[in-house]
């Protein structure tokens, strides 16, 4: 199934929730509104022709620069991008979904951006979402057990955010 037809079907099904797409990229992707990600994923998995039953990966990408000059040069609004890589073991095709989130919820620093969890669709999302929460700082609503996974539970900050600074000291261990 070609990228165009997938996009068409999704747009027909979800309308405005499909906020963008780039089908000419090396890996063509479709952008979905954060609120609709769960329904879209459910549809993608259940649909007979798509059968995207395999969630490969969830990645959080932070677009930010603490240096205002470089931030301007970056050419993008500061935001956090979630990338979902999906594939189908039966149909042998893949799909990339992107979700654009603000870096902080309602621009209040410290409040994590939220979006629905997809753990009810693919159980592998459980650990992937925990990792994204741990390292990129995104809150997945509806996740059964959202804790840090790679960093210690009392770790402060989200290391893969661009403005992250290594703590000076952690339990008596020098950080920097």
């Amino acid at each position: 199934m070609s990228g165009e037809s997938v996009l068409e079907r999704l747009q027909k099904q979800f309308g405005d929730a499909i906020t963008g797409a780039n089908l000419d990229a090396i890996d063509p992707w479709i952008e979905v509104a954060s609120t609709a990600i769960e329904e879209v994923c459910r549809y993608l998995k259940a649909d007979n022709e798509l059968q995207l039953d395999y969630l490969n990966c969830i990645t959080g990408v932070d677009y930010f620069h603490s240096d205002p000059k470089k931030l301007q040069k970056m050419g993008e609004e500061p935001h956090t991008l979630l990338v979902y890589h999906l594939s189908s073991t039966a149909k042998k095709h893949t799909l990339v979904l992107k979700v654009r989130l603000p870096r902080w919820k309602d621009d209040r620093e410290g409040d994590l951006p939220e979006l629905p969890s997809v753990t009810s669709i693919w159980r592998t999302a459980d650990w992937h979402e925990r990792e994204v929460y741990d390292l990129s700082g995104v809150w997945f609503v509806g996740h059964p057990d959202l804790r840090r996974i790679l960093c210690p539970e009392d770790w402060v900050g989200y290391p893969l955010r661009r403005d992250y600074e290594m703590p000076l000291e952690y339990h008596g261990i020098r950080g920097r």
Partner: peptide
């Protein structure tokens, strides 16, 4: 941005 998975001995390494 690009993503690619290969069949490593322990599974799909992407």
């Amino acid at each position: 941005d690009v993503y690619l998975e290969t069949e490593a001995p322990r599974g799909q390494m992407g």
